Amino acid sequence: MLILFDIDGTILLTHGAGVHAMLDAGRELFGPDFTFDGIETSGRLDPLIWRDLAERNGIGDADSHHDAFRQAYRKYLSRRLTDNPQTQLLPGVRPLVESLNGQAHVTVGLLTGNYPETGQIKLTAAGLPYEHFQLAAWGSDAPTRRDLPPVAMQRYTEVRGDTVAAESVLIIGDTPHDVDCAKFHGCRVIGVGTGRFTAAQLFEAGADHALDNLQHTEDVLDWILKTPDPVAE
């Protein structure tokens, strides 16, 4: 079984540090008028957010500026999370990850829109570093979020030496994008109402199971391992 956690809004909250760091990066590279107005971030891939930012700010040839933006974003995110510690590990995440890692037949990984370097900065700031996860599908690994589950499944094969069926993959996330990418490939999905969307909204979007948070570790673990019928809480 492969369990894949989203990062922002599912594992942790940075309370806006990521958006502010992207804004810092844009203003360093393109001037003080660089704006984030009207840009949607929830559940989206960082490279796609950059493309939207480039279009919004009239920056031509976004691809040629992408690496510079990515490097500056990393710098400012690290600075913000170091100088003003504010990252919050969400309730129940640590005991759930640790319990899943204790299951011999379970592989725990990440499926996230973050760049690998900035995702790992956030995890470290939350006190749950990347070493808790055996693999990851990052936002820079594929053109859309729907393309990330196959990336994670291929990495499972590289780590475990065998294949995993889609129905044995579970994605845990806080947005309809997480639900969509799971259901598109026939994976199961738990929606967690710790981001911008409620558990009810995520269940309506198609989640197999929906919770306000992950704090009831034994109940969540029981559902994951026993694969019950869909239910909303």
Rank of each mutant, 00 (worst) to 15 (best):
P116F: 07
D219W: 14
A182C: 10
S140W: 09
D61V: 03
I59Q: 12
D141P: 04
D67C: 00
G161C: 12
E28K: 12
S78F: 04
V93A: 00
D229C: 14
K183L: 11
D178K: 06
P85H: 07
D219S: 14
Y130D: 08
T112W: 02
Q71P: 00
E158R: 11
D222T: 15
P143R: 06
Q201L: 02
G113K: 07
G195D: 06
L48C: 11
R56N: 14
H209T: 02
L111H: 10
T107C: 11
G191D: 03
F30H: 03
I121S: 12
G38R: 08
T82W: 13
K75M: 07
L148V: 12
L202E: 10
V106F: 10
H216K: 05
P116N: 13
T227N: 12
A137C: 13
R44Y: 13
P129E: 14
D141C: 01
F197S: 14
L4T: 08
D63G: 04
I39F: 02
F197Y: 15
L202S: 05
L111S: 09
I7K: 12
I171G: 13
A152V: 04
V192E: 03
A21F: 14
Y156F: 08
T124E: 13
M153P: 00
G9W: 07
R51L: 08
G173V: 00
V189L: 06
H177V: 06
H15A: 14
L23A: 15
S42V: 12
L13Y: 11
Y130A: 13
L128Q: 09
H185D: 14
T175Q: 02
G92M: 03
G206P: 10
D83R: 12
L2H: 07
I172Q: 00
W223G: 14
T82R: 15
P149F: 15
I3L: 11
E158T: 06
R94C: 01
G193Q: 02
V220D: 11
Q120G: 10
A54L: 10
E131N: 12
H177E: 11
S168I: 05
V231N: 10
D24Q: 13
W223E: 14
A62P: 07
D46F: 10
L2T: 05
R146F: 15
D229P: 07
V97C: 03
T112V: 05
N84E: 13
P85F: 05
Q215F: 09
L214V: 07
A200F: 01
G193V: 00
R80T: 06
M1G: 09
G193N: 02
V97M: 03
Q120L: 02
L202W: 13
R188T: 05
L77A: 14
A125W: 04
N84S: 06
P176H: 04
G38W: 05
G186D: 06
D8M: 01
P149G: 15
Q154W: 09
A142C: 07
A21P: 15
G119H: 08
A137F: 05
P129L: 15
A207D: 04
T107E: 11
D63Q: 14
M1S: 10
S99Q: 05
G193Y: 01
H209P: 03
E204A: 13
A210Q: 01
L89K: 01
V164C: 01
D46C: 03
